[in-house]
């Protein structure tokens, strides 16, 4: 029994060394046969399944005219697919919402999620997160006609937030500091919050500024206040640790090479 184990281990070691040598010559994207099971599963399948937003312009947005999903996070997903599979087009994009992205990761329906997913300690207990690829802050969208100039004017008002977003906590802390009281209503999707703002059910629409910019129109304005800078990371399932590492390495390479900055410019974020 023990002998067999030793033999198996040494075999693994040899294979590892061999493939390690070979990696230098192969193109990036082919990491050889030492793949961990989570990476291998993706390679066997030949496609990377990525959860992205479809309702956040410039991040992940499905153009109703072309039915194509485009955005900063879609480009990130493609870069990771290129890294694993050698082909940026081998991505299977799946629409996720704040509510579905966790369950879809758990069930294996998606390998990774790049969907304006804010990194925090509590979430790290449930999922692996990459280092941040973008830092956003929470903002407030209000009706111009209301004449608000900042959070301080919103004492006693109602703020619409998205479920699973961290903006509620951020605004609450800021409001406590100002000594004012605000209440929150939570909605499933951003368009619903915008509808509630238009109908007067809520006085302000609060979510990450990058997302808010997609809902700005002639009758609304984004207040200059910024709260709780938050970092977006790419999430994967706990246990798929090789995948998490690969994703994280890719993000960091792209940061170093300036590719991330180029993408941020390309999608006119900030």
């Amino acid at each position: 029994m023990k002998k067999k184990l030793v033999a198996a281990l040494s075999l693994l070691l040899v294979i590892g060394l061999l493939s390690g040598c070979g990696a230098a010559q192969t193109k990036s994207g082919d990491t050889g046969s030492k793949d961990a099971p989570d990476i291998k599963a993706i390679k066997d399948r030949g496609v990377l399944k990525v959860g992205v937003k479809v309702d956040v312009p410039n991040f992940g947005y499905k153009d109703p005219k072309t039915n194509k999903i485009d955005g900063f996070e879609v480009d990130l997903a493609k870069a990771i697919a290129k890294k694993i599979l050698g082909n940026a087009e081998k991505v299977d994009l799946q629409a996720v919402t704040a509510k579905t992205r966790g369950p879809l990761l758990d069930s294996g329906e998606v390998d990774i999620v790049a969907a304006t997913f804010t990194i925090n300690e509590e979430r790290k207990k449930s999922y692996n997160f990459s280092d941040p690829y973008y830092t956003d802050s929470v903002g407030l969208l209000v009706k111009k006609a209301a004449g608000y100039t900042g959070l301080k004017d919103l004492n006693g008002k109602t703020i619409g937030v998205a479920q699973s977003s961290t903006s509620k906590k951020a605004i609450k802390e800021a409001a406590d500091k100002l000594g004012i009281k605000v209440s929150f209503l939570e909605f499933n999707t951003y368009p619903e919050i915008k509808a509630a703002l238009d109908s007067g059910r809520v006085d302000a629409f609060s979510v990450d500024k990058s997302i808010l910019s997609g809902y700005l129109d002639a009758s609304t304005v984004i207040l200059p206040d910024s709260f709780s800078p938050q970092e977006y990371g790419i999430a994967s399932k706990k246990g798929n640790d090789a995948l998490a590492k690969l994703v994280n390495d890719t993000v960091n390479e792209m940061k170093k090479s300036g590719e991330i900055d180029n993408l941020i410019k390309k999608w006119s974020l900030k």
Partner: peptide
Amino acid sequence: LALIAGGDLMYHADSWSSDTLYY
């Protein structure tokens, strides 16, 4: 009611589980 922030059982469950992700 959950869809219109109605404060019903489903709304609170959605809200709580999306805060904590303990769905």
